[in-house]
């Protein structure tokens, strides 16, 4: 898996985490048990790997590795979002106590909800607004890539509903809008044909952004 060399706050990079998934080897395996950001990264990388296998299983295994622009885009967003981020205050039962959720934990939760839908991979998952101020209006922006054959509008509506329920349950944020954008439709290319030596070798063909729905 192609990743750049920039690192998460804990010092590990997505490239290292990807190598760990491939080989089971990493310099300090104990760290993985104690770092929620690395655990979220591993979960996302596992999902991307599974999605890649799903694409490759559709008669295109001989077509080549592809440019993987869509996957690179997702990895770029992962790099930004696998961080603790801002602290989101929670109501406490005692004035001496301070309770928080990290922005990273909520981004990872949003990503897990999107990734749980078949044939879907979450790209950008962002909270916009002043999350540190209780009651402030928050907008959620989620970008997804969808494997061709999964109805997009239905997928977006399902995801929005599930995100609304999940965020209402697990946060105290005042969600004003959940914007879902399908940025890529992952369409397997036609198998290479001897009669057509110019057939592209891409394993996937990202399409133009297809939908952007507002609640």
């Amino acid at each position: 898996m192609n990743t750049t060399s920039d690192t998460l706050e804990c010092g590990h990079s997505l490239a290292e985490l990807s190598a760990y998934l491939d080989t089971g080897q990493i310099a300090d395996p104990v760290h993985l048990e104690t770092c929620p950001e690395c655990q979220a990264g591993l979960a996302s990388l596992r999902h991307l790997s599974e999605l890649g296998r799903e694409l490759l299983s559709s008669d295109v295994a001989d077509a080549g590795s592809g440019t993987d622009d869509w996957m690179q885009s997702i990895l770029d967003n992962l790099r930004l979002e696998l961080r603790p981020g801002r602290s989101i205050p929670l109501q406490s039962g005692n004035p001496n106590d301070t309770l928080w959720e990290t922005e990273g934990s909520i981004s990872a939760l949003i990503r897990s909800v999107a990734d749980a839908l078949p044939g879907t991979a979450a790209g950008k998952c962002r909270l916009h607004g002043d999350v540190a101020t209780p009651g402030a209006g928050i907008t959620v922006d989620v970008e997804i890539a969808v494997v061709y054959g999964h109805p997009m509008e239905e997928r977006a509506a399902t995801l929005r509903q599930e995100l609304a329920e999940t965020l209402a349950l697990h946060t105290e944020l005042t969600i004003q809008a959940i914007n879902i954008t399908v940025t890529d439709v992952l369409e397997p290319p036609k198998p290479a044909s001897p009669a057509d030596p110019t057939t592209p070798a891409d394993a996937t063909t990202p399409a133009d952004p297809m939908t952007k729905e507002q609640p």
Binding site: N96, T98, L99, W100, E101, T102, A108, L109
Partner: peptide, 13 residues
């Protein structure tokens, strides 16, 4: 003993 408790949720799920 009086206490001040700081709890951070760093992962959900």
């Amino acid at each position: 003993r009086p206490a001040a408790v700081d709890v951070s949720v760093v992962k959900v799920g």
